[in-house]
Design a protein around this nucleic acid. Structure first.
Ligand SMILES: [Mn+2]
Ligand SMILES: [Mn+2]
Ligand SMILES: [Zn+2]
Ligand SMILES: [Zn+2]
Lengths: 140, 140
DNA sequence: GGCTAAATGCAACATTATTACAATTAGCTC
DNA sequence: GAGCTAATTGTAATAATGTTGCATTTAGCC
């Protein structure tokens, strides 16, 4: 996964730098979306330092290459996660316990593509967030 | 629309204050999502002043009552718009010209509800953002 | 190992968001 | 309509997030 991203990076003429590897490493292993400062914090606990400006720039690059994606998080912050699902990022956010679950579904994408087509809109990326109650919290 | 919101506000024991009326007024007439500072700016051009803290608090309240909603904007900021569509907020954002078009679709909601149900998730709000090319930019 | 464009770090700044507390006001009672 | 009071707003201070310009470093190349 991270290796793939680095290959794509290089194939597009970008360097495989230490900061880029570190950011990809974190994104690759943490399931939840992460803000730039989240990433900085995680790396900090591992004794690695990256300037926040650098992290912003790396995330911008990854997004522009579709290797990562910005999304709406429960708190409203910009987050990024590795783009394992080619333009489809969906999240279920529990309003009660805050749990976030990411998933992808190509059928929904198709429906959305068709729908947008009616407006002459050509869709490339699908982001969505369902808020409600997770199975645990719903039972209560 | 705004009148309705005020009624709901009062029914829940909240006061119909001048700042709340002003924020609702703006949200009700501007079609695009607005950030707290957007709202402050619009009011400013009309000779009305509201402190940004007040606006944040009002938007929080409106969201908690489902009278408004936070969303991902093209720039990644938190925006709010009046909730005319009961838990369904969908946006098409053109990656080229930045145009934002809001819409709602109950069929998509149904599909999403069903999908989430498979995970035991009970969906209450649907947010989605399609990014791609609007009809104009796609032609070029 | 040196060269050079690309990338990072740093500093300064801009914007957005939150907190604590004092001042004001909407809605109620009389 | 005047007075009362809890709710709301404004103010000030601060925190968190995001951007820009420029000096320094480094990856990829010869
Ligand atoms: Mn993507
Ligand atoms: Mn809503
Ligand atoms: Zn839950
Ligand atoms: Zn366009």
């Amino acid at each position: 996964m991270v290796r793939d991203s680095i290959r794509i990076l290089q194939a597009q003429g970008h360097k495989a730098t230490r900061p880029r590897k570190l950011v990809l490493e974190v994104l690759g292993e943490i399931e939840n979306p992460l803000s730039p400062y989240d990433i900085q914090g995680i790396l900090h606990t591992r004794g690695k330092y990256l300037n926040h400006v650098t992290i912003y720039r790396i995330l911008d690059l990854l997004c522009s290459l579709n290797l990562a994606h910005k999304m709406l998080s429960s708190g409203g912050f910009v987050k990024c996660s590795l783009d394992a699902t080619e333009g489809c990022h969906r999240f279920m956010v529990c309003q009660h316990c805050g749990a976030i679950r990411e998933f992808a579904d190509k059928e929904l994408c198709q429906e959305e593509n068709d729908f947008a087509q009616n407006f002459g809109f050509h869709t490339e990326h699908h982001l969505s967030e369902f808020s409600g109650l997770c199975s645990r919290c719903y039972k209560k």
